[in-house]
């Protein structure tokens, strides 16, 4: 690690001295462009990553026992048949039948399900903002 960083610095210094354009940087920029074009179709997944950490979300979903009521792909034993299945959540139009599906709306719903839907059977698990955002991030990976 340390060695590679040093190597990079040396190369950097070389380039400054010789004034040769950095082919590697150009190639990298090209790769980024290609990746960006490729990712354009996956905007929602990028949004999911911005809102929170999907991997932490998967653990939070397990700890909050969401799977005892919901079917959630990728979560062990999440095979509940009380609430709706959460497969393809990223493609769903509505949350709980009342909110248009957006990351902000989902976080709000997760933090206070009974304020959004009066008489809701889904409990308020007392999620922290971080947890709610991570769970939302995981759900948006379900395309």
């Amino acid at each position: 690690m340390a060695r590679s960083r040093n190597a990079f610095r040396v190369e950097d210094a070389d380039r400054r001295r010789t004034g040769v354009p950095d082919c590697r940087a150009i190639r990298l920029a090209l790769a980024v462009c290609v990746a960006a074009i490729g990712l354009a179709g996956c905007q929602r997944s990028a949004a999911a990553d911005r809102i929170g950490d999907p991997r932490a979300g998967a653990i939070a979903i397990d700890r909050m026992a969401c799977g005892s009521c919901h079917r959630i792909p990728g979560i062990e034993e999440a095979d509940g048949s009380v609430g709706p299945p959460l497969a393809h959540f990223a493609s769903r139009q509505m949350i709980a039948g009342v909110l248009a599906n957006s990351p902000q709306a989902l976080v709000r719903y997760l933090e206070a399900p009974q304020e959004v839907v009066a008489g809701n059977v889904m409990p308020n698990e007392g999620l922290g903002d971080r947890q709610a955002r991570d769970i939302a991030a995981y759900l948006y990976t379900l395309r």
Binding site: R63, A65, G67, S68, C69, G80, S81, P123, E125
Partner: peptide, 27 residues
């Protein structure tokens, strides 16, 4: 285990395995 609209105690999510809600236990 909570209940309809009732959350479990906060410390329960720190258990592993975590106790499930029981709304569909009869199925």
């Amino acid at each position: 285990h909570g209940g309809p609209g009732a959350a479990r105690a906060p410390w329960v999510s720190a258990m592993l395995p975590t106790p499930p809600y029981l709304l569909d236990s009869s199925s």
